[in-house]
Write a protein that binds this DNA or RNA. Structure first.
Lengths: 218, 218
DNA sequence: TGTACATCAGTGAACGCGCGTTCACTGATGTAC
DNA sequence: TGTACATCAGTGAACGCGCGTTCACTGATGTAC
């Protein structure tokens, strides 16, 4: 079951790839994703620009890997939170927000303005779905989660026939709706908060987020 | 009351400034705001690059003007919608969404990932506040709008003392809360929808938006 | 109405910069006998 | 254990590109007498 035995060269390659990504994240955290430059990373590493082409085919491949790692980190964090004894959906929401506040540029890389000319590969879609699955898993355990037999609101009824995104998750339509709604509300707060739209408005963002979540699970 | 009489030269300047902005928007709609380039605009206008410096001090000034115009267009649209006989807050929300879908890049310029190294001047903040005011005006007319005397939820109580952003609007705290919450939910749907995060999920986005709004005014 | 002057739009050359990417190469590291 | 060879990380030069911005200038347009 262990990984195929690594040659020293393979190990070295993996290390350098990781170091490149580390510097890439630092750069993104400083100037945003659109400013990501291979040459600048190389300079920071004390290495010539073309050297990086041994490790990544080009800028796009690096960005793809960063996006994948970004989704992975969120998914892992959510798994960890969901596995905690007694974790409810509000705890999960807080986990998402903490993850986002931790590195706003990483958040924007995944959920912000699409990088022009870049199109996400399938691998990232798979992790996005995994994230939704964790959310759904947590929602079905909630006390407010309606049973499958209850009468459905119109949109829940719509979801009954349009649940492909839930990957065959057994949650009843009303729960799908709740999860989707909660996801959107989390994203709503985060996209505005991290873009600085709440700056100077004067209210307590933590309290607002809590109020939103309280309302979402009511 | 008319504008101060314009000399032909002033008129000409205004025309050219408008034409520059027109091409700027086209460019933004094609490749996003980060790709906005004065030289490219000049080329499109069949004019040399430095010529544009007669009209804008530099790239930043142009972007500022675009952002201001963007906020202005949303504010105007919302005023028009709010003044319509019998317009409720859901109609207003639809207006916002239509405005966003009409030109996603314009939306992202205002509410998306902040442009690195750019900081918004006060003038844009003023228009943002105007937008909130329209929203609040519409909310206080709603049948669900709670009276000032009703008992307050914790966050509404917090808003009682942190309502600077409402610019002295007379709406009771509970209404402030509702308006804020509605605003965030609209933004939540839009930021995900326009970034393409709903692509391939398979449900009807219009219907989802309607369901969100129905729940927000419940 | 005609002339002299001031204003100002637009030009082309230039500066300095950084980008992604390719290519032929050197020199170190690993592999096979 | 020692030698011959293959692999491959990293270099430096180069290509072609576009960017924002400055500067001294030409030539057209407006203004004042």
């Amino acid at each position: 079951m262990g990984a195929k035995t690594e040659t020293p060269r393979e190990r070295y390659r993996a290390q350098v790839r990781a170091e490149i990504k580390k510097h890439a994240w630092e750069q993104i955290a400083t100037a945003g994703a659109s400013a990501l430059s291979l040459n600048a990373i190389a300079k920071q590493m004390g290495v010539s620009g073309p050297a990086l082409y041994r490790y990544y085919a080009g800028r796009d491949e690096l960005i793809t890997e960063l996006i994948k790692d970004g989704y992975r980190s969120l998914a892992d964090r959510m798994h960890a939170a969901a596995d905690d004894e007694g974790a409810d959906v509000r705890a999960l929401a807080r986990t998402i927000r903490r993850w986002a506040l931790e590195d706003p540029h990483r958040y924007f890389l995944l959920y912000g303005t699409p990088v022009p000319g870049y199109h996400a590969p399938d691998e990232t879609t798979v992790i996005s779905q995994e994230i939704m699955t964790v959310l759904l898993d947590t929602c079905v355990r909630e006390p407010w989660a309606p049973a499958a037999e209850e009468p459905e609101a119109p949109f829940a009824a719509h979801l009954r026939d349009h649940r492909a995104w839930a990957q065959g998750h057994p949650a009843p339509p009303a729960v799908l709706h709740r999860a989707l709604s909660l996801w959107v509300r989390v994203q709503g707060v985060l996209s505005l908060e991290l873009a600085g739209q709440f700056a100077g408005m004067g209210f307590d963002t933590d309290a607002f987020f809590e109020a939103e979540m309280a309302d979402a699970v009511k």
